[in-house]
């Protein structure tokens, strides 16, 4: 008697997004991956990112000279032996550029991983707890938000010295509060929905709630934030190196190269421009990808 069952998949597909109003912010991240990468913006961002990461990772393997060897006159322009000229000490710019990417990547990727690990945990726990744990955690988080990020980094450096370790710890401290706040907000929103309450009524454990109910539904804002946050890590890491407070010479680092070669900017602009360009490409491509992702979310949620 009941043809409720009669609706075919085709009909269902057509009805998608029409009948009901509520759209799930986190719905089907899986479906979004290919979608946002298929846009022009997504492809462009991906291509550039792959290129830069390639240069950074493979560079050290193909650099013609060692990064500290002095092979020519300081400040000379490009020549047959050095396609990008020589830096302020006479080292080969090309080699240093090829070597200078890896530290930037490491200095940003490692802290980012920890940032999300800590930030997501803290955020979810704070968002789910209805006790004092939430305000306490948030006060701790707020302590770090109070500072301009670079300031906090400098503070740590003056106290603990320069070096990759300090910088990475500093980056985590600077970046995780944002993630924690973001995750807490998303968790709060998710936790007041029916399905989470239904899960609570079923007696699911806290861990199970976080893993099965909340986490899959908050991946969207987290991923949307990832682009911005990763490029922030890159900018800070490179920035601290630019200030000369990061890796010590003769290490090659794109940020450092920009500052140390400033004096020969007129004779050999490539020594400054090329590392600057590469950094720019890195941050722009990451932001492009992040933006493409956010746009793909926005489009699918605007069905009326």
């Amino acid at each position: 008697m009941n043809n409720l069952a009669g609706a075919k998949p085709k009909d269902i597909a057509r009805r998608r997004g029409q009948t009901d109003d509520l759209v799930f912010y986190g719905s089907s991240v899986r479906l979004h991956w290919p979608r946002f990468l298929r846009t022009l913006q997504g492809i462009a961002g991906l291509v550039v990112l792959v290129f830069v990461v390639g240069v950074a990772l493979i560079g050290p393997l193909v650099a013609p000279h060692s990064l500290s060897a002095i092979v020519g006159l300081p400040g000379n322009g490009p020549g047959p032996a050095a396609p990008l000229g020589y830096d302020f000490l006479g080292r080969d710019v090309l080699s240093r550029v090829l070597d200078g990417g890896r530290p930037v990547l490491v200095l940003s990727t490692v802290p980012i991983a920890f940032t999300y690990l800590i930030g997501i945990t803290v955020g979810m726990v704070a968002g789910l707890s209805r006790s004092l744990v939430d305000p306490v955690l948030m006060r701790v988080v707020d302590v770090f938000i109070v500072f301009p990020p670079l300031l906090l980094l400098l503070l740590l450096i003056v106290g603990a010295g320069t070096g990759a370790g300090v910088l990475m710890v500093g980056l985590v401290l600077v970046l995780f509060p944002g993630v924690a706040r973001l995750v807490r907000t998303a968790t709060l929103e998710a936790s007041t929905t029916g399905y989470v309450e239904a899960a609570v009524a079923r007696g699911e454990s806290m861990f199970s709630l976080m893993r099965r109910e909340i986490l899959p539904n908050i991946t969207a804002p987290i991923l949307a934030d990832l682009g911005v946050r990763f490029s922030a890590a890159v900018i800070f890491a490179a920035g601290v190196n630019f200030l000369g407070l990061g890796s010590s010479p003769p290490a090659a680092n794109w940020g450092l190269m920009i500052s140390e070669n400033r004096e020969i900017i007129n004779t050999n602009p490539w020594s400054v421009v090329v590392p600057a360009l590469l950094l720019a490409m890195l941050t722009i491509s990451v932001n492009m990808l992040g933006d493409a992702y956010v746009r793909s979310l926005g489009r699918s949620s605007a069905s009326r």
Binding site: D20, S27, S28, G194, Y195, A198, G203, R212, P216
Partner: peptide, 28 residues
């Protein structure tokens, strides 16, 4: 509170919510 109820007690009382869109986990 649910936390303090036994599995059996939780099982025997079920709640269905008003908004069906929000009552089902969109990722399940």
């Amino acid at each position: 509170l649910v936390r303090r109820r036994s599995v059996d007690q939780r099982r025997r009382v079920q709640l269905v919510f008003q908004n069906p869109a929000a009552a089902l986990n969109p990722r399940h």
